[in-house]
Amino acid sequence: MKTIASCVEEILLSQPFLEEAISRNIVNYSALASELVTPISEMLRKPVKSGAIMMALRRYSPPPDLGNSVRLKKVLNSLGDITVRSNLSNYTFKNSTTLYTSHAKVIKKLGDNPNTFYAFTRGIHESTIVISSSEQEHIERYFSGEVQIGVQNDLSAISISLPEDNTKIAGLYYQIFKRLAWEGITLYEVVSTTNEFTVLVEDQYVNKAFSAIKRLHS
């Protein structure tokens, strides 16, 4: 059975920025409780008082390491090089039995050219290719027999080198996504390996996104 406390928890979990503000004790509980009267009344299907909601808010215990752990801050301060690559294109194709053959042709053509950016991600139903725009003709030639779902040009990639123990740190990616969201930056694509994290943004956002990520060190 739903209670005021469970409704408060559900709302806060769906709004991580608000949850973090509560964990940092920078929220006006009375004002927030008043804001939550209507949604919680609708969730419980009965009227509730702001005083009861405020009590639930004060009793709520957010995760203890929500952005404040010493270990997480140490990792953020030790992020490696930040590399920006521009003039990129993003292709999305429907998965097929021949898609890997087309992919192999592109890999063979590109070879070990360090000046070419190339990333391939296969999902359940579709696959995405991010490539330097100068190589578009090869994609369009080798994938001509595939079902193209979409294509987007004028993109830039921002890659971050992560510490080796990054997979043991809870909340690391959240901190990156949070900073970008606060800056109003829309991510077009995300690509990651074990120790490298790349976000793909439209060219108009690249400078703002780079500055936001660089400030993670502070």
Results as ranks from 00 to 15, higher is better:
residue 111 G to L: 08
residue 115 N to A: 10
residue 51 G to D: 10
residue 71 R to I: 13
residue 66 L to G: 03
residue 136 Q to A: 14
residue 62 P to Q: 05
residue 140 E to H: 15
residue 83 T to L: 11
residue 59 R to Q: 14
residue 101 T to L: 02
residue 164 E to Q: 14
residue 94 K to I: 05
residue 175 Q to H: 04
residue 4 I to T: 14
residue 151 V to G: 02
residue 141 R to V: 10
residue 78 S to E: 07
residue 144 S to H: 09
residue 207 N to F: 04
residue 170 A to N: 12
residue 186 T to N: 11
residue 66 L to D: 06
residue 145 G to C: 04
residue 199 V to W: 04
residue 28 N to D: 00
residue 3 T to G: 09
residue 163 P to W: 10
residue 178 K to I: 11
residue 94 K to N: 02
residue 93 F to Q: 00
residue 51 G to S: 12
residue 171 G to D: 06
residue 199 V to G: 01
residue 198 T to P: 11
residue 26 I to T: 05
residue 197 F to S: 00
residue 92 T to H: 05
residue 159 S to A: 14
residue 96 S to M: 04
residue 1 M to Q: 13
residue 28 N to H: 00
residue 21 A to D: 05
residue 45 R to Q: 15
residue 48 V to G: 06
residue 99 L to S: 03
residue 206 V to A: 13
residue 213 I to G: 09
residue 122 R to S: 07
residue 209 A to E: 09
residue 33 A to Y: 03
residue 105 K to H: 05
residue 109 K to S: 13
residue 7 C to F: 07
residue 205 Y to M: 12
residue 210 F to K: 15
residue 69 S to H: 13
residue 31 A to N: 03
residue 171 G to C: 07
residue 156 S to G: 07
residue 105 K to Y: 01
residue 85 R to K: 12
residue 209 A to W: 08
residue 56 A to L: 00
residue 210 F to P: 02
residue 14 S to H: 13
residue 95 N to W: 02
residue 44 L to I: 04
residue 48 V to K: 05
residue 66 L to E: 05
residue 216 L to M: 08
residue 48 V to P: 04
residue 171 G to Q: 01
residue 146 E to V: 00
residue 35 E to A: 11
residue 132 S to I: 07
residue 36 L to K: 02
residue 189 E to L: 10
residue 128 T to L: 00
residue 56 A to W: 02
residue 12 L to A: 07
residue 193 T to R: 04
residue 196 E to Y: 10
residue 188 Y to L: 13
residue 69 S to F: 11
residue 142 Y to D: 15
residue 23 S to P: 07
residue 124 I to S: 11
residue 140 E to W: 12
residue 24 R to G: 04
residue 146 E to T: 05
residue 96 S to P: 08
residue 19 E to C: 10
residue 206 V to F: 07
residue 168 K to G: 05
residue 35 E to G: 04
residue 82 I to L: 11
residue 150 G to D: 09
residue 209 A to K: 07
residue 42 E to M: 13
residue 177 F to H: 12
residue 98 T to H: 03
residue 185 I to H: 03
residue 113 N to A: 06
residue 73 K to T: 15
residue 14 S to W: 09
